[in-house]
Amino acid sequence: MEKARDVVAKIGELPPIPAVILESMKLLNDPSTTVKKIQEQILLDQGLTAFILKVANSALYGLRKEVSTVSYAINLMGYNTARSILTAYLSKNLYSARGNKLIQTMLWKHSISTACFARKIAEHLKKANSEEAFISSLLHDIGKGVLLKNKTDEFEKIIELIYNDNMNSIEAERSILGFTHVEIGFLLMTNWRFSESIVETVIYHHNVQEYNGESLLVPIASLANKLSHMNDYTFDKRVDELLETQMLHLSNDDLDDITKKAVQEIETYLEIF
Protein backbone atom coordinates (compact mmCIF):
# COMPACT_ATOMS: atom_id res chain seq x y z
CA MET A 1 0.00 0.00 0.00
CA GLU A 2 3.06 2.30 0.00
CA LYS A 3 2.24 3.43 -3.50
CA ALA A 4 -1.14 4.59 -2.29
CA ARG A 5 0.38 7.79 -1.00
CA ASP A 6 1.62 8.72 -4.47
CA VAL A 7 -1.93 8.35 -5.65
CA VAL A 8 -3.06 11.36 -3.60
CA ALA A 9 -1.46 13.74 -6.06
CA LYS A 10 -3.33 12.12 -8.94
CA ILE A 11 -6.75 11.84 -7.37
CA GLY A 12 -6.94 15.39 -5.99
CA GLU A 13 -8.60 16.44 -2.79
CA LEU A 14 -10.34 13.73 -0.79
CA PRO A 15 -13.90 14.59 0.23
CA PRO A 16 -14.17 15.65 3.88
CA ILE A 17 -16.46 13.83 6.29
CA PRO A 18 -19.44 16.12 7.02
CA ALA A 19 -19.21 17.66 10.49
CA VAL A 20 -22.71 16.57 11.53
CA ILE A 21 -21.91 12.94 10.75
CA LEU A 22 -18.59 13.12 12.53
CA GLU A 23 -20.11 14.66 15.66
CA SER A 24 -23.10 12.31 15.68
CA MET A 25 -20.79 9.32 15.30
CA LYS A 26 -18.70 10.48 18.25
CA LEU A 27 -21.84 10.80 20.36
CA LEU A 28 -23.14 7.40 19.29
CA ASN A 29 -19.82 5.80 20.22
CA ASP A 30 -20.26 7.01 23.77
CA PRO A 31 -22.86 4.86 25.55
CA SER A 32 -23.39 7.55 28.19
CA THR A 33 -24.63 10.08 25.62
CA THR A 34 -28.28 10.96 25.92
CA VAL A 35 -30.58 10.47 22.95
CA LYS A 36 -31.57 14.11 23.22
CA LYS A 37 -28.00 15.21 22.56
CA ILE A 38 -27.75 12.99 19.50
CA GLN A 39 -31.05 14.27 18.21
CA GLU A 40 -29.89 17.89 18.51
CA GLN A 41 -26.86 17.09 16.40
CA ILE A 42 -28.77 15.14 13.74
CA LEU A 43 -31.47 17.81 13.38
CA LEU A 44 -28.77 20.13 12.02
CA ASP A 45 -28.91 18.13 8.79
CA GLN A 46 -32.34 17.99 7.16
CA GLY A 47 -31.41 15.24 4.72
CA LEU A 48 -30.05 13.05 7.49
CA THR A 49 -33.13 13.66 9.63
CA ALA A 50 -35.44 12.61 6.82
CA PHE A 51 -33.27 9.59 6.08
CA ILE A 52 -33.43 8.32 9.68
CA LEU A 53 -37.18 8.82 9.91
CA LYS A 54 -37.72 6.98 6.63
CA VAL A 55 -35.78 3.99 7.91
CA ALA A 56 -37.66 3.98 11.21
CA ASN A 57 -40.98 4.10 9.36
CA SER A 58 -40.03 1.43 6.83
CA ALA A 59 -41.03 -2.20 6.71
CA LEU A 60 -37.74 -2.98 8.50
CA TYR A 61 -39.41 -2.08 11.77
CA GLY A 62 -43.01 -2.75 10.82
CA LEU A 63 -44.53 -0.30 13.28
CA ARG A 64 -48.15 0.69 12.99
CA LYS A 65 -47.68 4.11 14.53
CA GLU A 66 -45.69 6.72 12.69
CA VAL A 67 -42.25 7.56 14.06
CA SER A 68 -42.06 11.33 13.89
CA THR A 69 -39.07 12.23 16.06
CA VAL A 70 -35.41 11.41 15.65
CA SER A 71 -35.05 10.53 19.32
CA TYR A 72 -37.81 7.94 19.10
CA ALA A 73 -36.24 6.56 15.91
CA ILE A 74 -32.86 6.19 17.59
CA ASN A 75 -34.35 4.54 20.66
CA LEU A 76 -36.15 2.18 18.37
CA MET A 77 -33.11 1.12 16.37
CA GLY A 78 -30.46 1.42 19.08
CA TYR A 79 -27.11 3.21 18.90
CA ASN A 80 -25.40 0.51 16.87
CA THR A 81 -27.97 0.46 14.09
CA ALA A 82 -28.11 4.26 14.17
CA ARG A 83 -24.37 4.24 13.35
CA SER A 84 -25.09 1.97 10.39
CA ILE A 85 -27.80 4.30 9.14
CA LEU A 86 -25.49 7.30 9.43
CA THR A 87 -22.85 5.46 7.44
CA ALA A 88 -25.41 4.54 4.80
CA TYR A 89 -26.35 8.21 4.50
CA LEU A 90 -22.70 9.19 4.28
CA SER A 91 -21.95 6.77 1.46
CA LYS A 92 -25.16 7.51 -0.43
CA ASN A 93 -24.23 11.20 -0.44
CA LEU A 94 -20.75 10.51 -1.69
CA TYR A 95 -22.06 8.26 -4.45
CA SER A 96 -24.57 10.90 -5.53
CA ALA A 97 -22.12 13.79 -5.66
CA ARG A 98 -21.43 13.71 -9.40
CA GLY A 99 -21.73 11.75 -12.59
CA ASN A 100 -24.30 9.72 -14.40
CA LYS A 101 -27.47 8.83 -12.52
CA LEU A 102 -27.25 5.20 -13.58
CA ILE A 103 -23.74 4.83 -12.22
CA GLN A 104 -24.73 6.53 -8.97
CA THR A 105 -27.62 4.13 -8.59
CA MET A 106 -25.48 1.10 -9.35
CA LEU A 107 -22.86 2.12 -6.80
CA TRP A 108 -25.48 2.66 -4.12
CA LYS A 109 -27.33 -0.57 -4.89
CA HIS A 110 -24.12 -2.53 -4.73
CA SER A 111 -23.04 -0.92 -1.44
CA ILE A 112 -26.28 -1.26 0.42
CA SER A 113 -26.82 -4.80 -0.81
CA THR A 114 -23.30 -5.86 0.20
CA ALA A 115 -23.94 -4.34 3.63
CA CYS A 116 -27.21 -6.25 4.04
CA PHE A 117 -25.59 -9.51 2.95
CA ALA A 118 -22.79 -8.91 5.47
CA ARG A 119 -25.26 -8.23 8.27
CA LYS A 120 -27.13 -11.46 7.54
CA ILE A 121 -23.89 -13.47 7.34
CA ALA A 122 -22.76 -12.04 10.70
CA GLU A 123 -26.14 -12.75 12.28
CA HIS A 124 -25.94 -16.29 10.99
CA LEU A 125 -22.39 -16.84 12.31
CA LYS A 126 -23.27 -15.28 15.66
CA LYS A 127 -19.54 -14.69 16.21
CA ALA A 128 -19.26 -11.32 14.51
CA ASN A 129 -20.81 -7.97 15.31
CA SER A 130 -23.52 -7.57 12.69
CA GLU A 131 -23.52 -3.76 12.67
CA GLU A 132 -19.74 -3.65 12.22
CA ALA A 133 -20.15 -6.11 9.38
CA PHE A 134 -22.83 -3.87 7.88
CA ILE A 135 -20.73 -0.72 8.14
CA SER A 136 -17.46 -2.18 6.87
CA SER A 137 -19.19 -3.82 3.90
CA LEU A 138 -21.11 -0.68 3.14
CA LEU A 139 -17.80 1.10 2.77
CA HIS A 140 -15.83 -1.58 0.93
CA ASP A 141 -16.11 0.20 -2.45
CA ILE A 142 -16.10 3.75 -1.07
CA GLY A 143 -13.04 4.45 -3.25
CA LYS A 144 -15.31 4.17 -6.28
CA GLY A 145 -17.39 7.02 -4.87
CA VAL A 146 -14.27 9.20 -4.75
CA LEU A 147 -13.34 8.16 -8.29
CA LEU A 148 -16.80 9.06 -9.55
CA LYS A 149 -16.64 12.40 -7.75
CA ASN A 150 -13.09 13.44 -8.64
CA LYS A 151 -12.55 11.58 -11.93
CA THR A 152 -16.06 11.48 -13.37
CA ASP A 153 -15.18 11.03 -17.05
CA GLU A 154 -12.54 8.42 -16.37
CA PHE A 155 -14.85 6.49 -14.08
CA GLU A 156 -17.59 6.42 -16.69
CA LYS A 157 -15.03 5.08 -19.19
CA ILE A 158 -14.10 2.43 -16.63
CA ILE A 159 -17.73 1.28 -16.42
CA GLU A 160 -17.88 1.14 -20.21
CA LEU A 161 -14.71 -0.94 -20.30
CA ILE A 162 -16.04 -3.41 -17.73
CA TYR A 163 -19.15 -4.04 -19.82
CA ASN A 164 -17.71 -3.86 -23.33
CA ASP A 165 -14.40 -5.66 -22.71
CA ASN A 166 -15.49 -7.99 -19.95
CA MET A 167 -12.83 -6.73 -17.54
CA ASN A 168 -13.19 -6.62 -13.79
CA SER A 169 -13.15 -3.25 -12.06
CA ILE A 170 -9.54 -3.59 -10.88
CA GLU A 171 -8.25 -4.31 -14.39
CA ALA A 172 -10.33 -1.51 -15.92
CA GLU A 173 -9.25 1.03 -13.29
CA ARG A 174 -5.56 0.14 -13.69
CA SER A 175 -5.76 0.50 -17.45
CA ILE A 176 -7.44 3.91 -17.35
CA LEU A 177 -6.03 5.46 -14.16
CA GLY A 178 -3.03 3.39 -13.16
CA PHE A 179 -4.48 2.91 -9.68
CA THR A 180 -7.66 1.45 -8.23
CA HIS A 181 -10.58 2.16 -5.91
CA VAL A 182 -8.88 -0.02 -3.30
CA GLU A 183 -5.99 2.43 -2.81
CA ILE A 184 -8.38 5.38 -2.79
CA GLY A 185 -10.68 3.68 -0.33
CA PHE A 186 -7.72 2.99 1.94
CA LEU A 187 -6.66 6.64 1.79
CA LEU A 188 -10.15 7.93 2.48
CA MET A 189 -10.81 5.59 5.39
CA THR A 190 -7.45 6.46 6.97
CA ASN A 191 -8.09 10.12 6.36
CA TRP A 192 -11.50 9.88 8.01
CA ARG A 193 -9.91 7.91 10.89
CA PHE A 194 -12.22 4.94 10.52
CA SER A 195 -11.32 1.84 12.51
CA GLU A 196 -8.60 -0.63 11.57
CA SER A 197 -11.13 -3.36 10.80
CA ILE A 198 -12.91 -1.16 8.26
CA VAL A 199 -9.62 -0.22 6.63
CA GLU A 200 -8.74 -3.93 6.38
CA THR A 201 -12.05 -4.71 4.70
CA VAL A 202 -11.41 -2.03 2.12
CA ILE A 203 -7.90 -3.32 1.42
CA TYR A 204 -8.71 -7.02 1.21
CA HIS A 205 -12.17 -7.25 -0.32
CA HIS A 206 -10.69 -8.32 -3.65
CA ASN A 207 -7.98 -10.63 -2.30
CA VAL A 208 -9.17 -12.23 0.89
CA GLN A 209 -6.71 -15.12 0.44
CA GLU A 210 -3.86 -12.72 1.23
CA TYR A 211 -5.37 -11.62 4.52
CA ASN A 212 -3.64 -13.11 7.59
CA GLY A 213 -5.46 -11.25 10.33
CA GLU A 214 -8.06 -12.45 12.77
CA SER A 215 -10.99 -10.23 11.88
CA LEU A 216 -14.04 -12.05 10.56
CA LEU A 217 -15.20 -8.81 8.97
CA VAL A 218 -12.76 -9.27 6.10
CA PRO A 219 -14.01 -12.64 4.81
CA ILE A 220 -17.58 -11.55 5.56
CA ALA A 221 -17.24 -8.44 3.41
CA SER A 222 -15.51 -10.39 0.67
CA LEU A 223 -18.28 -13.00 0.60
CA ALA A 224 -21.01 -10.36 0.86
CA ASN A 225 -19.45 -8.54 -2.09
CA LYS A 226 -19.63 -11.69 -4.23
CA LEU A 227 -23.18 -12.51 -3.14
CA SER A 228 -24.21 -9.00 -4.12
CA HIS A 229 -22.72 -9.50 -7.58
CA MET A 230 -24.31 -12.92 -7.93
CA ASN A 231 -27.70 -11.45 -7.09
CA ASP A 232 -27.40 -8.76 -9.75
CA TYR A 233 -26.76 -5.76 -7.54
CA THR A 234 -23.74 -5.30 -9.67
CA PHE A 235 -21.79 -3.59 -12.37
CA ASP A 236 -18.66 -5.66 -12.23
CA LYS A 237 -17.53 -8.92 -13.71
CA ARG A 238 -19.01 -11.74 -11.69
CA VAL A 239 -16.83 -13.91 -9.50
CA ASP A 240 -18.29 -17.29 -8.85
CA GLU A 241 -15.84 -19.18 -6.66
CA LEU A 242 -16.64 -18.59 -3.02
CA LEU A 243 -13.43 -19.26 -1.08
CA GLU A 244 -14.84 -17.57 2.00
CA THR A 245 -17.50 -20.18 2.62
CA GLN A 246 -14.78 -22.56 3.79
CA MET A 247 -13.15 -19.92 5.97
CA LEU A 248 -16.51 -19.16 7.57
CA HIS A 249 -17.81 -22.76 7.58
CA LEU A 250 -20.95 -21.99 5.64
CA SER A 251 -22.88 -24.62 3.68
CA ASN A 252 -24.89 -24.02 0.51
CA ASP A 253 -28.08 -24.20 2.57
CA ASP A 254 -26.72 -21.52 4.86
CA LEU A 255 -26.01 -19.34 1.84
CA ASP A 256 -29.53 -19.81 0.50
CA ASP A 257 -30.97 -18.87 3.85
CA ILE A 258 -28.74 -15.79 4.15
CA THR A 259 -29.57 -14.72 0.61
CA LYS A 260 -33.29 -14.98 1.14
CA LYS A 261 -33.18 -12.86 4.29
CA ALA A 262 -30.77 -10.33 2.83
CA VAL A 263 -32.72 -9.80 -0.40
CA GLN A 264 -35.80 -8.88 1.58
CA GLU A 265 -33.91 -6.27 3.55
CA ILE A 266 -32.19 -4.93 0.43
CA GLU A 267 -35.46 -4.47 -1.41
CA THR A 268 -36.82 -2.50 1.51
CA TYR A 269 -33.79 -0.22 1.58
CA LEU A 270 -33.97 0.31 -2.17
CA GLU A 271 -37.59 1.21 -1.89
CA ILE A 272 -37.01 3.89 0.73
CA PHE A 273 -33.95 5.40 -0.92
Binding site: N100, I103, T105, E160, N164, T234, F235
Partner: peptide, 22 residues
Protein backbone atom coordinates in the same frame (compact mmCIF):
# COMPACT_ATOMS: atom_id res chain seq x y z
CA UNK B 1 -34.46 3.76 -18.19
CA UNK B 2 -31.75 5.87 -16.65
CA UNK B 3 -31.43 3.61 -13.63
CA UNK B 4 -31.33 0.35 -15.61
CA UNK B 5 -28.37 -1.46 -17.13
CA UNK B 6 -27.53 -4.65 -19.01
CA UNK B 7 -24.95 -5.80 -16.45
CA UNK B 8 -25.48 -9.52 -15.83
CA UNK B 9 -28.31 -9.51 -18.40
CA UNK B 10 -26.59 -9.48 -21.77
CA UNK B 11 -23.13 -9.04 -23.29
CA UNK B 12 -24.37 -8.80 -26.86
CA UNK B 13 -24.50 -5.02 -26.99
CA UNK B 14 -21.89 -2.31 -26.85
CA UNK B 15 -22.33 0.25 -24.11
CA UNK B 16 -21.95 3.85 -25.24
CA UNK B 17 -21.66 6.46 -22.58
CA UNK B 18 -22.44 10.12 -23.08
CA UNK B 19 -22.13 12.84 -20.46
CA UNK B 20 -25.81 12.56 -19.62
CA UNK B 21 -26.89 9.05 -20.54
CA UNK B 22 -25.84 5.51 -21.27
Amino acid sequence: GNSESLFSISNDFKMLHFPSAI
